[in-house]
């Protein structure tokens, strides 16, 4: 039996080819680092439960997309049903950082009428000696777009949990405040309660207070 969860969030992971999208996800979902992994063709799927507060679990459905530019006409169709996204670049590859802007524009153009909460991830931070992108400039870019910035390493398991859980918490807050709503025909957020029962944001806040007190 599957554990009970409060919500299911669909997250999409994007960024240039070979920045380490699949490795990051596998570290997060399988707890191990794959020395070599197949290139992703189209999209691969992962899932994991995250406990954001004691007893409050969110099920993450993670879409791992192909990074090669040629696949963008396929992957762009997947934005609109995602509530969150991890946008990766490789800190040792300047070009992958320069393309961040393009990825965001691409997402923005195809997510309508919904919205995606993005986190900018500077990956492979274990390779600090080969760094081509400073933390400062990445933070600046993230701030300009209103995103969090975090540096991760799948190899050394640095900040992998944090990248996913921070994003999950941010989305959860928006759902709780009613800024993101569950909608018929939208896969971004699903309720883990009895289907079709809409919980008003007020109710959730109330129950939340009870828990914290």
């Amino acid at each position: 039996m599957e554990a009970i969860w409060l919500y299911q969030f669909r997250l999409i992971v994007i960024g240039d080819s070979t920045v380490g999208k699949s490795c990051l996800i596998r570290r997060f979902t399988e707890g191990r680092f794959a020395q070599v992994s197949d290139p992703t063709v189209g999209v691969d799927f992962f899932s994991r439960l995250v406990e954001i507060e004691p007893g409050k679990r969110i099920k993450l459905q993670i879409w791992d997309t192909a990074g090669q530019e040629r696949f963008r006409s396929i992957t762009r169709a997947y934005y609109r049903n995602s509530v969150g996204g991890l946008l990766l670049f490789d800190i040792t590859n300047r070009r992958s950082f320069q393309n961040v802007h393009e990825w965001l524009e691409e997402a923005k153009a195809h997510v309508q009428p919904y919205q995606i909460v993005f986190v900018l991830v500077g990956h492979k931070c274990d390779l600090d000696t080969q760094r081509q992108v400073t933390r400062h400039e990445a933070e600046k870019l993230a701030t300009a777009y209103g995103m969090r910035y975090i540096e991760t390493s799948a190899r050394d398991a640095i900040n992998v949990e944090k990248a996913f859980t921070d994003l999950t918490r941010d989305i959860y807050e928006l759902v709780r405040k009613g800024e993101i709503n569950i909608q018929e025909g939208w896969e971004g957020v699903k309720s883990g309660f009895v289907p079709n029962v809409v919980h008003s944001s007020e109710e959730v806040i109330k129950s939340d207070r009870r828990c914290l007190c």
């Binding site: 080819s17 070979t18 070599v36 992994s37 197949d38 290139p39 090669q68 530019e69 070009r95």
Partner: peptide, 25 residues
Amino acid sequence: ADREASLELIKLDISRTFPSLCIFQ
């Protein structure tokens, strides 16, 4: 630049092709 990226990509992908067979690396 794109073509360069694609030649670069070939190099990276070769080692990721049937990695378990250990013959294309």
